[in-house]
Design a protein around this nucleic acid. Sequence first.
DNA 1: AGTCACTGGTGCATCGATGCACCAGTGAAG
DNA 2: CTTCACTGGTGCATCGATGCACCAGTGACT
Lengths: 346, 346
Amino acid sequence: MTIQQVATEAGVSPSTVSNLLNGRNHRMLPETRQRIERAIDKLGYRPNRAARQLRTGRNTTIGLVVPSVGNPFWGALARHLESAALAEGYHVLLCNSERDPRRERDYVDELWADGVHGVVLCSSLPSLEHVMPLVERGLQLVAFDRTSQAGDPASLVSISVDNAIGSQLATQHLTDLGHRRLAFVSGALASVNRKERYRGFTAGLEQAGIDPETSVRAPVKGDADDFGDVEASELGRAAAAELLALEEPPTGIVAINDMCALGVCRGLRDGGLEVGKDVSVVGFDDIVLADLYAPTLTTVRQPMQEMAAAAFTQLRSRLDDSGPTQGQSLLFRPELIVRESTAPPS
Amino acid sequence: MTIQQVATEAGVSPSTVSNLLNGRNHRMLPETRQRIERAIDKLGYRPNRAARQLRTGRNTTIGLVVPSVGNPFWGALARHLESAALAEGYHVLLCNSERDPRRERDYVDELWADGVHGVVLCSSLPSLEHVMPLVERGLQLVAFDRTSQAGDPASLVSISVDNAIGSQLATQHLTDLGHRRLAFVSGALASVNRKERYRGFTAGLEQAGIDPETSVRAPVKGDADDFGDVEASELGRAAAAELLALEEPPTGIVAINDMCALGVCRGLRDGGLEVGKDVSVVGFDDIVLADLYAPTLTTVRQPMQEMAAAAFTQLRSRLDDSGPTQGQSLLFRPELIVRESTAPPS
DNA sequence: AGTCACTGGTGCATCGATGCACCAGTGAAG
DNA sequence: CTTCACTGGTGCATCGATGCACCAGTGACT
């Protein structure tokens, strides 16, 4: 099925069909238009993407670079992004960087070489310098789960949840329940997002009249760039053990993310404590597991669907030239989801 | 960077460069070859995929249709498949069917229309009739997590773990530990894979000299086509409650998959029993969560990485015309992973 | 009558890579 | 001397869609 066949069927020239297909039909007779549309239906014609891309240099594929879709958090993003893209006829090319900066960079290079002009990048790296050259040549980039920073390219769109508010909600929830001795469990506060979450934690404490200095921040080493990974859960488990060894262990724990929180729960159980009774734990992300674990996990939900949709919309409008070229930061409002892992202190 | 520029740089014609790029260099002077290769390096040339595809009708993209990458099981597949494909310069186009048969079909149609000739299909449907027309036109299909059946197209490749052996291993593990009252928890045994797993269960019982009739098969209704989903866990939870209501509840439980097993664990805990002590539970799949849950879950591992690699290899060889055109079934050997959720009966 | 704008389209070169058909030159066989 | 195979390439039409430049016809105005 080529455009030529459609044209013949409709008794017009290929150009006219092309015009209609591309919205240049202001001065086209309604009747001509109908003839073409009927021909398209009848023949089941679909434009050849390769030809179209060859000619125009554009395409309807966007790239998604995540650390690993094996991880439910990124899997959820992939699912929602693809869903949003599908609705507009776009496709998503999936790329797992496996947290390898080089692989990440190679992927973005290859996507560009393949004519992909829009990429959602979930970078493990604090700096985006490795992709700057392509951005300068016109690559549209959306950074996901990463708030914008000085030094970012001017055209960059950043999409993230408001991390400070999120963990403030979590903290407030604990203080509202009556907890006074709280701890924050995280890997090194290397990324902006993590710092923000910590800031929200201290803000929550202050609001409840608790001196942040007396609260515990579990001192945990470890790689800073893992979100939602197995390592995060091990980290949480170790942190829980440390906290339990204190003279006055905390009764409420805010974890940097859900996987970490699950690790904390496990560590507490190792220590003979019951989560949701002896100790309260709050996570962050609301991954699927949160509602499956025993006890179910109170957590701060990132509105993944909306965030993914926004990522797509932003990319799309820029690819169309219809949107702004200036970059911007989108901060989404997190939501506290109360489940079984939190309760008043015993 | 076009092939023309490379040709000019190397002092040959574009055809010659194309010949080299496509392996038609049997009778090419080594010196010519080197000149071209140097030119390619120097200019950083990469063939334009769109042009190549337009001309040849082929491309280096394969489709992956899964129910949902939000699910860790499929996420893991996506990750490994993409990894295997990447190593050969292929790309993976990700499609979430969301268990919607129509969407699944539309996706396969669209992939075909876009020139994708190879698809890994993880169908929710027992029959593949909806994609038969395309297979007849040359679409190469690999069915994943689904053993082949009568009525399948002759060219179909099926990749799956040996489900019977897997659950037999699980069952044997329990009987070896001394359990004599066992139950099998699953949704309706509608799919071949599920029947196979049940068959392995009964085989394991017989081998231990236990009459399968005396064993309990938790009677659970529900949709038959969900693997590894949230629903599966709810199903497991309900089943556990039912089992506990029996006069002589089983001491060992084999679940149809890990999510279901986690649900069972939760249901048992609801009933005041401790998993890995009062009752033993075995899952199937070895998803990431299995090692995170409390207690960690004994389960039957599907060698996902090998299976994904095989899926790609099969597709690739058929796309090249270098492989067999006859379909085949690949059954992988599962492996029992013993963790904390199983122990001798108390 | 001449100029102009406008209408509803169409012609054609073009994007970059491909691979069949072909070529000129050479040496060997008949 | 003719025929033929072989060597190491090259010329060119082609894939399908695009969109600029252009066209013929008509009516309005100066």
